[in-house]
Design a protein around this nucleic acid. Structure first.
Lengths: 190, 190
DNA sequence: CGGGCCTTTGACTGGTTTCAACTTCTGTGG
DNA sequence: CCACAGAAGTTGAAACCAGTCAAAGGCCCG
């Protein structure tokens, strides 16, 4: 919880009273490896802040194959935004890759926080902007770079992830078959 | 300008006074086909609302090839968000595909509007959320669908664009070589 | 030690790209 | 109104990048 509040106060100023608003409205939940934060088809009632551990957000296509949309380490936020905003069933599944601690916030909690912590609206907007721009960059790299180039850019941008997460998850995130990623790495080793 | 204000008032309520705030702070510019709204390397000082015409937003890679990030018809917004927010040079180029009319808003204008029109912050957030979710879906379709499936989804979602925009622009948007798209269409015609 | 999951490797396949030539379409100026 | 240039679309052949399938080996954890 301290890490959660510290992270927010890196972007906006928080008084002691503000901090208590968070503490009174957010819960900490724990997930074991392979447990789900959200499953496709359920409504995403919570937005979560990863305070410990690591998760993947993915969809499952008609062939039953997984496609990783996000890999979230400490400090990242997780949710199915569409489902969370509309109340419709989620398309994403969010699953723990390690044992995790997640700070969760339901919709009422967020409304309360928005009302009681003046700067939070701004925090929220900045977070959204940053996520959007990162996703723009990702589309761009998928349009303009080869599998190898995307992998190189990935390990440069997220070296911590490479250490912790199975290759097949990274391969899926990059839109590459795991066997292909293995070959790319072999090639690069030279 | 009416179309601009009408569009905004579909999402948030606007009083007559609100409308005048927009009129007093936004300008209308015209672009002829092939002219630029923004060029890579310049700072994106304006956000634009397309009130007439059609534009493409793209990057140019190290081989000089174009990669279309967005195709914007009437009612869409255009800008290089990163450049606009940070003041850094833009990565995107935005070019008119037809003669256009664009309602432009610089940063001071937006600040003023945010201050004077209470609901605008909300409008802005909703716009951002929708764009972000659309981009999420696009990443997903690139991860999970073949070229043909992506094209089919595209014509279903944006039939108006298919009518108006050269195939090679659509091909680039989908991450397909123009020759391949031509063959896919031939195949589908049967 | 056994089992599950992950990674690697090989052989084969296939969807897309690339390159080049040709056709069609469109807009402009003589 | 026709001619022409430039842009866009089509088609074929060859090359290739990456995916698929299958099998084997490595590694961690219970």
């Amino acid at each position: 919880m301290e890490f959660f509040i510290d992270t927010i106060s890196k972007t906006i100023q928080l008084t002691q009273a503000d901090k208590e608003v968070f503490i009174n409205n957010c819960l900490v939940t724990k997930l074991k490896k392979r447990q789900f934060f959200l499953q496709e088809g359920n409504v995403c009632r919570y937005a979560g802040f990863v305070s410990k551990g690591c998760l993947k957000t993915y969809t499952i296509d008609k062939n039953g194959d997984e496609h990783v949309f996000q890999i979230a380490l400490e400090g990242w936020w997780i949710s199915d935004m569409y489902s969370h905003l509309t109340g419709e069933p989620a398309n994403f599944t969010i699953e723990a890759l390690e044992d995790c601690e997640i700070v969760v916030m339901d919709i009422e909690a967020r409304e309360k926080i928005l009302k009681e912590v003046p700067g939070y609206e701004r925090f929220h907007r900045i977070l959204l902007e940053n996520n959007y721009m990162a996703t723009q960059r990702r589309v761009n790299s998928m349009l303009s770079s080869s599998a190898e180039e995307r992998y190189l850019a990935f390990i440069k941008k997220y070296p911590q992830i490479v250490q912790r997460v199975p290759q097949l998850v990274i391969a899926s995130y990059l839109g590459i078959a795991p066997e292909s990623l293995s070959r790319i790495r072999k090639q690069l080793a030279k």
